[in-house]
């Protein structure tokens, strides 16, 4: 863990994610993300409103079939504890006190899942629910340092991943052009023309505090992790003109 220096994932990975056209693409991207973050596993697990499961990830086939065979979904504290939630969760926060949960955990560790985990629940449309989970074998300190450092980016990536997965649903319309609000368009246009944040805030007669919220929202809609990236993507897609 922590092999990567500044950004553990590249803009290229995000672009690949946006262009993903099949489950195989998602599988290949999740493997790249795992390598870039330097963790043992990343798994994206989707449970729809009918209880049907779908997922991509780096767990061994052996573990996946074992999980399904033993119907671990019913006792997995990660699924039980994150279902219908929207806050990111460290596995240590979950209730592992039952005998079944403890034996499930031992089994998972034996199958190389790792002793640490961090799961991000995602609520999609019409009762869709997904979990984006990283797991690793390391000390508590290493893990809390890692999650502390990357939590924000991981939350965003988890949601971007879900957006891509949703576009692969049968009967789904291809994703529409990001729906930037008039304020977000103004903000990005001014930033693109080289104005500083305080100049943008001044020009639009909003505080920098409000400006930050508009930027955060624009970044998400454009599937960007940082502002430079968001501006570049907005220009590229013709959403702003300078």
């Amino acid at each position: 863990m922590g092999h990567a220096v500044l950004t553990p994932f590249s803009d290229t990975t995000l672009s690949r994610l946006e262009l993903a056209a099949s489950a195989e693409d998602l599988q290949s991207i999740i493997e790249t993300l795992r390598d870039q973050f330097g963790v043992d596993h990343i798994v994206y697990h989707w449970v729809n409103s009918n209880g049907e499961q779908y997922g991509v990830g780096t767990y061994s086939e052996d573990w996946v079939s074992r999980y399904l065979q033993n119907n671990y979904l019913r006792i997995d504290p990660v699924v039980q504890g994150c279902s219908q939630r929207f806050h990111p969760t460290d596995w240590k926060q979950l209730d592992w006190s039952s005998k079944a949960a403890r034996s499930f955990y031992r089994d998972a560790v034996e199958h190389g899942i790792g002793n640490q985990g961090f799961s991000i629940p995602i609520r999609g449309p019409n009762g869709q629910f997904a979990l984006f989970t990283l797991s690793h074998n390391c000390s508590d300190t290493e893990w809390s340092d890692f999650t502390e450092q990357y939590r924000r980016d991981l939350i965003l990536i988890a949601h971007f991943f879900n957006q891509s997965a949703l576009t692969l649903e049968p009967d789904r319309q291809p994703e529409a052009v990001p729906n930037l609000s008039p304020r977000e368009t103004d903000v990005l246009t001014l930033l693109a023309t080289g104005h500083s944040r305080s100049q943008v805030a001044n020009t639009l007669q909003i505080s920098e505090h409000t400006l930050r919220a508009y930027i955060e929202s624009a970044r998400f809609k454009l599937r960007a992790l940082n502002t430079t990236h968001a501006v570049a993507r907005a220009l590229h897609r013709g959403l702003i003109v300078i």
């Binding site: 965003l156 729906n179 609000s181 919220a213 970044r219 998400f220």
Partner: peptide
Amino acid sequence: GGTIESPL
């Protein structure tokens, strides 16, 4: 106008 959307 428009929406505010972000998991953050």
